[in-house]
Design a protein around this nucleic acid. Structure first.
Lengths: 234, 234
DNA sequence: ATAAGATACGGAGAACCTCTCCGTTTGGCT
DNA sequence: AGCCAAACGGAGAGGTTCTCCGTATCTTAT
């Protein structure tokens, strides 16, 4: 049991195949990091010590490979979201500060926007907001790390209705996590009720994609902060 | 005088060269529209009825060609911005409604955020806001039309410090236009003073880039509205 | 231990792309 | 008309994606 977890590596696989698969993904991780999203797949095969044919049998296209590279990181993000969601926001003492989120405004501020006089509700809103901010910062960091490769790959993946043979739809995992966090923030009044989680995800994806084009290193963080201000409402 | 305006087509050019240049740009416009940003330059040359060599002499790389394709549209955008800036916002009657911007909140609303009780100031803020919204909607539409090709090309262009031989730095033109509009909005209190115009442009670029990845057709508009809400302040 | 058969490997190669080089053509000037 | 700088176009080098198939290797059954 728990042979491979969710990270789908077809069960009845020959040992060498599994090994090669891992080698390829490892090489891809390196090469993508070095050469960016358009890195040569040949080069990846070369560095993995396999022929191009082998690479292409394991991963039918660039997207599938990119998805495989990030799938574990996506799972980390999902776990992160789960952890944040597990801390019940209604009986939290000061989770907001414990989490140490830089951008979260203080409870009073958030509460003011939520129109809540109740200090408990204010704390809940602040905690929900802090969690939302923390997670999206993590998501953005992840997306930037992979220079948009992964993000683009994931987005296209479910748009095309292909599962990339991975068995896991990364995009769905991400959007589900975001949806849960946003829904809670909305319930506590920390976020505008008319914001769609898919829109928020898409926006952060956009930030990540545009990050590679210019601007300073802190720009993406600023943009995210700006967007989240918008989400908090007027 | 005014032979070619700003659109740089070197003056002392042979007639056939100029003709070919135009043919290439026209073909590029078509092909980019059909096949997206990664369209084959060979195909463009073929469709323009010239050899690859000719294409590459006119445009040293894909970016230069993409820039040439959009340069006129960029100039339209700049003109649009100039027009919007020309209407003096302080003695405007109800330019906001005259422009018919869908997303602009009413004067009272904007004014409330600006903390202004003065109705004249409120009107000025509303007008400045409406202009900002209108222009960014136009910019987004432009960016989407070119499926991000142009946007990416432009952003890289000035990041690399290259002028692409066009003589016009499209990116600079755009950011300058945005800066002027935003500055006015900030002066009237319609926009947060701590938002940088480059950030705003980058964000819209991000929206355009991510627009191609999925989501519905109205999503980009929603995202822009969300961002602009953030810009208006808390 | 070994043989049989399914599985996976790898590299040759087809098709395509970007970009360069250079012999040839052609427009513009005198 | 004649000259020549300017411009053309296509062959081709070098790289990329992706496929095909003969060969090698793992696995299972005997």
């Amino acid at each position: 049991m728990a042979k491979t977890g969710r990270t789908a590596t077809p069960a009845g696989q020959r040992a060498d195949a599994r090994l090669n698969r891992e080698r390829i993904v490892a090489a891809a991780r390196e090469v993508f990091a070095e050469d960016g999203p358009d890195a040569s797949l040949n080069e990846i095969a070369r560095r993995a010590g396999v022929g191009p044919g082998t690479l292409y049998r394991h991963f039918p296209n660039r997207r599938a490979l990119a998805a495989a590279v990030v799938v574990e990181r996506v799972e980390i993000l999902v776990a992160h979201a789960d952890r944040l969601l597990a801390t019940d926001v209604t009986d939290v003492t000061d989770a907001a500060h414990a989490r140490g989120s830089v951008h979260a405004p203080d409870a009073a501020h958030v509460a003011a926007h939520a129109g809540a006089a109740d200090p408990a509700a204010a704390a809940a809103a602040a905690a929900a907001d802090a969690a939302l901010v923390e997670w999206f910062r993590a998501f953005l960091a992840h997306a930037r790390l992979h220079q948009g490769t992964a993000v683009a790959a994931m987005a296209e993946e479910s748009a095309d209705g292909e599962a990339d043979g991975l068995g896991v739809d990364c995009h769905r995992l991400i959007t589900d996590a975001a949806a849960a966090l946003l829904a809670r923030a909305q319930r506590t009044g920390a976020a505008r009720p008319d914001v769609a989680s898919d829109d928020l995800v898409q926006l952060v994806v956009g930030i990540a994609l545009s990050a590679g084009l210019g601007g300073d290193d802190e720009q993406p963080e600023r943009l995210l902060a700006l967007v989240l201000d918008g989400v908090r409402g007027r």
